[in-house]
Design a protein around this nucleic acid. Structure first.
Lengths: 158, 158
DNA sequence: GGCCATTGAGTTGTGCACAACTTAATCGTG
DNA sequence: CACGATTAAGTTGTGCACAACTCAATGGCC
């Protein structure tokens, strides 16, 4: 591995510079989005993770917690309390499955279904705020998904 | 604005699909990185946000909390307890400034300085795990920084 | 000099992420 | 059928992110 002090191959000491860390750029962008969503979602009475849960339910309808977690990459440790809060606000129902008593099915209440019509505004408001072209967004998204897949694949062997 | 059902201009109902949300891709990638760092940083006894603080201190030396927060986009509400934990592990010192008693200066202990030699491994192990070319990483990073800047600029007016 | 707005840290409360664990239901195999 | 392994959800504990707040120090301005 040849390492010369160029833009593409930084010197040894540069590896620990904060502004050279892709993860920090990712983290910062993610939090910046969070701030934006917090403002936009306030009207709907949702936090950002709660909004993601609602997206999945609007798209797929009733689902066991396990499936929900698969879509969102979240485990029951995160979802259980979050779903309880959503149930408390009256947007979803949680019911033990009759066929398999281990599993809990999550479904939308009428109120939860109704919220969708108010939520269609959200993506457009967010997209407008980024000021990015849609093609650029899609491209970025493709790369990020590739990156996530690579990280997931690498995780077990690190 | 013309909207036709092509790949670049999805139909109305597709706007609420989870897999169409750039923020989710970002969020997922960020958490996937988090999992990787958790494993790698375990040896150093650091969490990922603590590692970021150490990066800034290794790069800039002694800094007031305010400056640290500026680099990391974090406020005192997040930093104060985090810095206390780092102080408790003996990696940093926190000292009230003599010139301005409102401000607290954060500096590295000998132990904190020494940790750097063990940390130089981290970025390479992470980079290896991504399996991405360095140029691709840099490109992605540039776009993310642009995105973050756009979001920050948009935030006040949303 | 006196007064008030501003500033920097810290505290409190809420919610999320995740590891480690518990509990109960189900499955598989002899 | 019995019994150990597996599975799904939930609980507990730690740490981070952030809003809203407190408190003390500072600075500006009359």
């Amino acid at each position: 591995m040849t390492e010369q002090p160029t833009a593409d191959a930084p010197r040894e000491q540069d590896f620990l510079r904060l502004d050279g860390q892709i993860c920090f750029a990712l983290n910062a962008a993610s939090r910046a989005f969070g701030g934006l969503y917090r403002v936009v979602l306030k009207d709907l009475g949702l936090t950002y993770p709660q909004y993601l849960v609602m997206l999945v339910l609007w798209e797929h309808g009733e689902l066991p917690v396990k499936e929900l977690g698969h879509h969102l990459r979240l485990d029951s440790g995160t979802l259980s309390p979050l779903l309880k809060r959503l149930e408390a606000t009256g947007l979803i129902r949680r019911e033990r499955s009759a066929e398999d008593e281990r599993s809990v099915h999550v479904s939308l209440t009428d109120e939860g279904v109704a919220l969708r019509t108010r939520a269609v505004e959200v993506p457009r408001r967010i997209a407008a705020a980024t000021g990015f072209e849609l093609t650029e967004i899609r491209d970025l998204q493709t790369r990020l998904n590739k990156l996530t897949a690579a990280l997931d694949a690498a995780a077990p062997e690190v």
